[in-house]
Design a protein around this nucleic acid. Structure first.
Lengths: 226, 226
DNA sequence: AAAGGATTTTAACTTTCTTTAACACGAGTA
DNA sequence: TACTCGTGTTAAAGAAAGTTAAAATCCTTT
């Protein structure tokens, strides 16, 4: 996969160089524009995956650059760099489709964290990761399944399987769909492996009488509440 | 439909204003509270569809606000905003009925995506598949047929067949329709298989004198109450 | 690179569910 | 009446899923 291309518009030459080099050091391609007009023409000329705009820039401020970019592109994520002094009324500018903002001063790691968070989210939409299964609570992030204070740490496969089932409480999940979602392949042997995991999940979920994984013979499984 | 009302509690004025305006820009109504006490009184005063709580707030932290809210309302979704430094053990606080949490820093888009995912998930409640057949009660979800406390667990085919018949109590169900509904195909062999299941269902339903599956020769079956 | 532990897969055996087969019977029809 | 067809019933065969333990793989640490 080719590297993500980032367009950075920042008029302060010191900060601009510093940030662009840092971004490059982290494995992205980065183009630096030093004013708003330059930023917009760079955007139209090349194809970028991400845009970082300083709000206050000569010739064309960050908001109007964003507005123009949104005129031709509704997708590419835009992140604003704002001064702390910014007034509320200016914040309304975000309504034109910004994805995030960062208040100066900020650390470079912080900037990168935001960029990566947004990229991650826009590439594949992030899902909620907390599932309530009657009296159980399942946190997909920490992979902890808890019931009245008792915690059970799940393995990767266990939690991926439980996630898909939890998303479909009361609804049948096709056996092959389940296999493709968790194993990526619905062959016979993965199926047997899944059956082993179903047994394990049932054991974990046995503390709550009302929670049950039922099998639909020849079809799939269903997580259901009495 | 009127817009979803969101209560946002965030003590950082910059972030608070920004988020609330972003939320409004996305078509929600949003009230901003700047500390925990204000958040709780706002919640009791108005009727909100969603609550977003910063965990660390002056006067009353997010957890205790959530606890108090849950004291009077078990339904309304709650989402926590947590600091990155927060340890897993602190996450235990979530068992008091949070629907999700988001770790700072996050993008605004991410916040919105979570809110929408939770709303989608909580709005559709599991439909009950409960059928009453005179003194029998049949739960299609759990596949349990009960009669005066006695429970009989049904198999997939048994329960699918009984479901169709239960939906049509007193009405004749055409043999071929029944086959297509349960087996997907009304060939001769499936028909014989169905006859075997009819026998089984009759056995299960024999505890109640008034319940009967009658055959209409050459046509189909009918579940009737005497 | 090897050890040790955790995780996942494979394997073997068991149980449950579904279909098939065989035979019985009674309703509708020639 | 007798004959056929549709259904009733039971048992056995076959297929899917449940369970447990061992083997293989993957990860982390040294």
């Amino acid at each position: 996969m080719e590297p993500t291309k980032i367009l950075l518009a920042e008029d302060d030459p010191n900060l601009g160089m510093l940030l662009s080099q840092y971004i490059r050091a982290k494995g992205f391609k980065c183009t630096l524009a030093t004013d708003g007009e330059e930023a917009y023409s760079a955007f139209t000329a090349g194809s970028y995956d991400f845009v970082i705009l300083d709000v206050m820039m000569p010739k064309k401020d960050g908001f109007s650059v964003a507005k123009d970019i949104r005129g031709i592109d509704r997708e590419t994520p835009i992140l604003f760099l704002t001064a702390k002094s910014m007034k509320d009324d200016k914040l309304k500018g975000f309504e034109l489709g910004a994805d995030d903002y960062l208040t100066k001063p900020f650390s470079m790691e912080e900037l990168l964290a935001r960029v990566e968070a947004i990229l991650k989210r826009t590439n594949k939409k992030e899902e909620t990761h907390l599932y309530s299964i009657n009296n159980y609570l399942f946190d997909f992030n920490t992979r902890i399944l808890s019931f009245q204070g008792k915690e059970q740490k799940l393995t990767t496969k266990e939690s991926e399987l439980l996630k898909v089932l939890s998303k479909n409480i009361g609804k049948e999940v096709d056996r092959n769909d389940l296999l493709k979602a968790v194993w990526g392949d619905d062959n016979y042997f993965n199926g047997r492996s899944m059956d082993v995991y179903i047994t394990k999940l049932r054991k974990y979920l046995s503390l709550d009488e009302k929670v049950e994984i039922v099998n639909i013979h020849g079809k799939g499984f269903k997580l259901t509440l009495k």
